[in-house]
Design a protein around this nucleic acid. Structure first.
Lengths: 221, 221, 221, 221
DNA sequence: GATGAATGAGCTTTCATTCAT
DNA sequence: AATGAATGAAAGCTCATTCAT
């Protein structure tokens, strides 16, 4: 339920830092983290629009003004949370390495999908936000999200193209099929995380099923 | 950009209808339609939350009170638009007929997917709303939408099961794969409609590509 | 529950009146009366502020615009109802006749109080409005009502003065005591009509009790 | 014209109170009081319905939101004012003590009536509201007010019964006569306070006159 | 005369953000 | 740095009244 520590959390202290400022800075970051954690809980429980700043500060146990000492606005903290998750996700998705000696393509893909599911499963609250809320909030948030999905799409499309060149992927419209793959994963996730609630997900089975589907389709043989 | 006339639009006139009331009723429905059209334009341009009732009445060229003469609330008109689209969509999706003498399964599926894309393509503005906005608004809207997707999911899952019994679908987890299929379609749509803007979609090619992907997967052979 | 026909109801037709206009005028007055009756019912049930013009036209079974054909405004119809009741009441209240040969003062007062109660009891709905609602609505209504109570007050005060001159009323502050008398009657009425609901009032007993109280006070002897 | 400080005004501070919170709380109550005072002035000048929240905040010199920081709604602040006054009034009305050695009944009654008048005279603005505005606003307000008058009525009726048992009150219908007494006082008050405006009231004379009237009635002897 | 759809000023209330302490 | 009272723009909605048919 809590947000993982993320590099971006710590603002770089550019001034001369003696012990005092360093300690102050650490306390500051700790508090910032507490607020972010509280915000995740509230946003994923209530949704962005139902969440009032009052809810966040109550959950965090801080005063109204304090919130604005750490974050510019309600939208800013939401954007930061979203950015954190996207960073996590990007890290768990890698293109297929087709150089000689690399692991088999299928194994690589399995690892990639499994990693993705793993990351999302261990950030259930944030993921709930990502899937349920992050569209139609405002221009900036929308762009951020679309950019993320676009880059995932491109990653998949490029992999498909390379696969075609290697002769392991059949001729197909890489953009449409990239969308299909991305959509498969999103939808399975939505179903697994949002509908199934707290029940843990069998990562291996789900990842295997997704890959089999993507690789072989539905037909017998 | 405008909403299509829909059978459900016209409220049944239960009273005795002479010429006058029939005409009045027709005018009323026409006006209702104009407001719905205006709302579609505004909602799909600004998003649900950014849209104020003031925007809709300005677009429709009516007074504030007039809006509430036809619709109970901002949420109500949105729900109605969404309901219209879902009705449209349900009509274009049919389960696979596996009785002897029916058209080949592949052809049926192609017709179904193509019809779905067709419906959505000809309701671009509404579809934009469906994809971009209809999640996380409020409990009622969410339930409506989830119910719709759930019923699509179930339709697919049942078709898959039947296919397995007939021996044309390989063994697989019907729920996960149903999600994959549904997600494929959603994502392709989102890409085609939202990102590509007004550029028309090659329905046959897209539908064919989706089906091929779902049927055969990615692998050569 | 219905309003009594009142002379003021019929607007004098000053133009040349042939049969046609006379009939039209009669129909008009009849309709006016229906609306007034409907308004009484609604006002006394809901109170002035809770009553919307929509309630009155629904009760009367007329169209919105028709209401304004007969009455200038919601306030105007209320004022007219109030005026009707005040006219009724004024008619049932008479000063004490102290000329030789007149009925005994006590009998006259009893008749006056009894008549007042009678009038109000047979206009329960209107009276409910008078007692519960007619203060603080707007300047004009307030003035009308205060004028009515003031004239009742003056009538009583004058009677008291005359009684003092005749030696039948003890020395007392006529204004204060006139208020006491008026207040007694109002409060008894409020209790009898508003709290007791539809239970009929024993006019003789109540009038007798009020008079005895006013005449002899509370003390033994 | 200003509201008196009332014990109930100060919310009990249940938390640990250091100097800071105590001061803050005091300031808060002071501000609350200022708003209540402003509301009394506006309500008694314009009447409940003519008064908009905008009028109160303008009179109080505060922002719109500040009002809602202290009071739930326009109706809530009105109810609080009314409740304050009723509490005051209840405190100044006491039943007659008929145990041996108590003050003479007449003196007790005089003190009670005088106290009532005193309280109302020193809360002229609130009283104006009580008499002119507080009926027919909404269910809750009506109940509050009716409950108050009912309790006054019962108090008087019980006193009358006890007086009868002691043989100092003649046989009479206690409920009707209790209404008469209550009505007398209400009406005198209305006349003295509302009609006479700011002119001070001769409490002793008015109280004396009311009592004499109630005790001895109008007749000579 | 009758109709009822249309009007729009005006209301109460919410809540993200500011700023004096 | 922390606080939380104060702010006020902005929203959704109501309803007495008008007016074209």
């Amino acid at each position: 339920m809590t947000r993982d520590a993320v590099p971006g959390d710590v603002e770089v202290e550019v001034e001369v830092t003696d012990g005092r400022t360093r300690r102050a800075s650490a306390i500051r970051e700790q508090r910032r983290g507490l607020i972010l954690d509280a915000a995740v809980r509230v946003f994923s429980a209530l949704g962005y629009h139902q969440t009032r700043v009052a809810d966040i500060i109550e959950e965090a146990g801080i005063a109204r003004g304090t919130f604005y000492l750490y974050f510019e606005s309600k939208n800013a903290i939401f954007l930061e949370l979203l950015g954190d998750l996207l960073t996590h996700l990007r890290d768990s998705v890698r293109g297929v390495d087709t150089t000689a000696g690399a692991a088999p393509v299928t194994a690589q893909l399995f690892a990639s999908v499994r990693g993705l599911l793993q990351t999302l499963a261990s950030n259930r609250a944030l993921t709930t936000i990502l899937i349920r809320e992050a569209v139609g909030l405002d221009e900036e948030t929308d762009k951020m999200l679309m950019g993320f999905y676009e880059s995932l799409h491109d990653l998949i499309a490029e992999s498909l193209e390379r696969g075609q060149q290697m002769g392991v992927i059949r001729p197909l419209d890489v953009n449409i099929v990239a969308s299909c793959i991305l959509g498969s994963i999103k939808q399975v996730l939505e179903r697994e995380l949002v509908l199934k609630g707290d029940e843990p997900m069998d990562l291996d089975r789900v990842a295997g099923e997704i890959l089999a589907y993507n690789a072989r389709g539905l037909m017998v043989g």
